[in-house]
Design a protein around this nucleic acid. Structure first.
Length: 437
DNA sequence: ACTACACCTAGA
DNA sequence: CTAGGTGTAG
């Protein structure tokens, strides 16, 4: 009782079912790479199983404040900290601003439960698995941060991406403020500095590329500097340093109002941005919920089902194929197809297994997915190669993801005739990078 | 328009 | 050898 109260002391409360938002899931599934996560030590070990007290604190640094979040099954707890040097803003107005940021960032106006219902109605595969992916929704991220984060994501893993994004902040933005870890006021030993994400003008400097390479960014170092420079060159650098959004950032934000196809064309002009990265940015920061980024798993399976009708499965993913796959998945899941795909595939990456977010995987789950009930085709699923059977939880989850994807595609190919196929050819429209129309 | 292939780096 | 790719030259 007292312990529970202590864990939310100083926080404002926003009633919110866990099924609408699971911070533990959403903040670690590879959407944003900049949240700090702190396990909270329980006062009494006995209450460890008490699900009504928060187990973690999550922190995120904005331009003017650090947002701190905790969660229980029925509420989100929030508070924010501003630099003491700045204008003394009274708590109520400050937290009102924080709340409105939260609503926007987590897109709380979107009813996730309703979406789950819709996806369940449309797709038997989703219906069968929905219980395992509760509270997973898309963030509405800052476009520039999202763009650079996903430029970092090519041929890369979440862990390293997070490290790189953090390096960008600490290297190129002065610390906004420092905070001790949540639990303890253990002196100043654990204090951590919080840095906002750097603006385009700072990253556009020529020497940035070399420095980022030194920091281990690899070939992405040049992409980042070049993209930042392209944006700044095209839209101008800030008249006064330190002011709010730079022209380049505002321009990126305007892509939200454009059609998906047009916004994508703009993004593809930037260095290090191919179809996959562009689609991630569209989905996660540009209000384009129907966009389905085609990752390697979907990629492979799509090739298998749509690559070459009969010949070798070695077909590459071409822009047309990519479009076709995307269109077909929209036909399965609807206008929030990108969200649905994220729930099913983005969510169960490695990070999850270690956080106990997924319910135990039934031993027969793979078979169950492969031979779903209902209207799914009876086409037998190719069983996982015996050589891969290392029998770890991770491996099981990974295999299942592939199985789910394959099941969806099998259903697609079975209902081929009924599916409306109209897709635009992107390549035709992107005449040339780095050049106007 | 489609196909190869190199590219940085950390970790199985 | 791959990890949730992209630029570039044939």
């Amino acid at each position: 009782m007292a312990a529970a109260a202590a864990l939310t002391a100083g926080f404002r409360k926003l009633p919110l079912p866990l099924a609408q938002l699971s911070l533990a899931a959403v903040l670690q599934c590879g959407q944003s790479f900049r949240w700090s996560i702190f396990p909270l030590t329980r006062c009494a070990p006995d209450t460890a199983a008490d699900a009504t007290t928060p187990s973690h604190e999550y922190r995120f640094c904005l331009k003017d404040r650090v947002v701190c979040l905790r969660q229980t099954p029925d509420a989100l707890y929030y508070r924010s900290v501003c630099p003491t040097s700045l204008k003394p803003l009274d708590d109520d107005t400050r937290e009102a601003q924080t709340l409105s940021w939260i609503r926007d960032y987590f897109q709380l106006d979107v009813d996730l439960l309703q979406l789950y219902e819709e996806w369940s109605d449309r797709d038997p595969v989703f219906r069968k698995l929905r219980h395992r992916f509760s509270g997973i929704r898309l963030l509405r991220q800052d476009p520039f941060e999202c763009l650079l984060s996903f430029i970092c994501s090519s041929n890369n893993n979440i862990k390293r991406i997070s490290k790189m994004v953090k390096a960008l902040c600490t290297e190129y933005t002065p610390a906004l403020l420092s905070l001790p870890p949540p639990d303890e006021a253990e002196g100043e030993l654990g204090v951590e500095a919080y840095h906002p994400f750097p603006p385009p003008s700072v990253l556009s400097a020529p020497e940035v590329a070399a420095n980022l390479r030194k920091l281990g960014f690899g070939y992405r170092a040049d992409f980042i500097q070049k993209t930042a420079k392209m944006l700044v060159d095209a839209h101008g650098s800030p008249s006064v340093a330190g002011t709010r959004p730079e022209p380049a950032e505002e321009w990126l934000s305007k892509l939200r109002a454009m059609t998906t196809a047009d916004a994508r064309i703009e993004l593809l002009k930037l260095m290090g941005v191919g179809r996959k990265v562009a689609d991630c940015v569209l989905l996660m920061s540009m209000d384009k919920p129907e966009v389905v980024p085609v990752d390697t798993h979907v990629h492979d399976i799509a090739k298998k089902y749509y690559g070459v009708a009969g010949s070798k499965a070695k077909t590459n993913m071409t822009p047309q194929l990519y479009d076709m796959v995307n269109t077909k998945l929209v036909n399965v899941w609807g206008t929030y197809a990108g969200w649905a795909q994220s729930v099913l595939f983005t969510s169960d990456l490695k990070a999850f297994a270690s956080y106990g977010l997924d319910s135990p995987v039934p031993s027969d789950s793979t078979t169950a997915v492969a031979t779903p009930t209902g209207s799914l085709p009876a086409t037998p699923m190719q069983s996982p190669s015996p050589s891969k059977r290392k029998r770890g939880k991770k491996v099981a989850v990974q295999e299942e993801t592939v199985a789910v994807t394959a099941a969806v595609f099998e259903r697609l190919s079975a209902t081929e005739g009924a599916v409306e196929v109209e897709y635009f050819t992107l390549a035709e429209r992107v005449k040339r990078r780095r050049r106007g129309p």
